[in-house]
């Protein structure tokens, strides 16, 4: 019995000594993975419309970025994207966008040797059916011999595509507050019409330039656009009055059967 106890204590001592040493594992994950890089945390939605483009423009390329998870290697590594079906307004591959397995685009779905990030194209097609509807291209990173899926929350991207007006991503609370007021399709179309001759597109870029960085909004510029559209609207409403028409309004809704009067506001949400 005594010997057994002595033996146990001896073993314990050995463990106690070993406990002082800590061996760190080196990274040994053998599977390389791929994740999308989002512009904003958890925001995957990209809105695209052809409505500002010349009629001759039939393609629009959206660039999405992916990043590897694992070792950087010295050879090119193709990867695959695949459409996720299930949306009621899902876009049709080959009709509304170039299919992901079409060599025109799939040849670009490659992480170059020595790289851990790459931007790849999603090519949208201006199909006539987009004139009166907005469709969704939902896609994810597929598995192949080079990559498996990475973090679940970074596996999907969604692009909406249309040839109709859609609310620009950056017509957000800041644009609303500083110069544009609440979004409305009639208002948006009016803004497009009155700036067309100036070569300005009232799209994401326009709003991004003005309020994309909320910490450094040039309020001289937002004031300018507020008054620009306000003056233009005054002029438009005066013309409409001469023609016996009502002031410019949004489309009627059930809550507002007459349609909301179009106006630009500042410093209001």
């Amino acid at each position: 019995m005594k010997k057994i106890k002595t033996y146990i204590l001896g073993v314990f001592l050995v463990f106690a000594f070993l406990a002082c040493e800590e061996e760190m594992d080196v990274y040994h994950e053998s599977i390389d993975r791929l994740n999308f890089i989002y512009e904003e945390w958890s925001d995957t939605l990209l809105n695209r419309t052809f409505v500002f483009d010349d009629k001759t423009r039939v393609f629009d390329t959206v660039w999405v970025e992916v990043a590897t998870q694992g070792f950087v290697v010295d050879h090119d590594r193709p990867f695959v994207l695949e459409q996720v079906m299930g949306d009621t307004n899902a876009a049709e591959a080959g009709v509304h966008f170039i299919a992901f397995n079409d060599s025109q685009v799939s040849s670009h779905y490659v992480v170059p040797a020595g790289a851990n990030e790459v931007k790849v194209p999603i090519v949208l097609k201006r199909d006539a059916s987009l004139k009166d509807k907005e469709l969704t291209v939902r896609f994810r990173i597929g598995n192949n011999e080079n990559f498996s899926s990475g973090y679940p929350q970074y596996q999907e991207r969604v692009i909406t595509v249309t040839d109709m007006l859609v609310q620009p991503k950056y017509w957000n609370m800041y644009a609303t507050y500083y110069f544009a007021g609440k979004y409305g399709k009639v208002k948006h179309q009016f803004m497009i019409d009155v700036t067309r001759d100036m070569g300005i597109k009232i799209n994401d870029d326009f709003f991004y330039e003005l309020v994309g960085d909320p910490s450094s909004v040039d309020m001289g510029m937002t004031d300018y656009w507020f008054y620009f559209f306000t003056y233009a609207l005054e002029e438009e409403n005066a013309k409409r009055a001469e023609q016996g028409l009502d002031v410019l309004r949004e489309e009627p809704t059930t809550s507002n059967p007459e349609g909301e009067i179009v106006k630009f506001t500042r410093y209001e949400f």
Binding site: D218, G220, Y227, T230, Y231
Partner: peptide, 26 residues
């Protein structure tokens, strides 16, 4: 006219002017 900018409060601007201010926005 009014050109918004207040460097003391880190509000920078071009120093240029837009359009004349309106009473009641009209």
């Amino acid at each position: 006219y009014f050109s918004t900018q207040a460097p003391l409060y880190d509000l920078l601007g071009t120093g240029k002017f837009g359009l004349p201010a309106l009473v009641n926005e009209s």
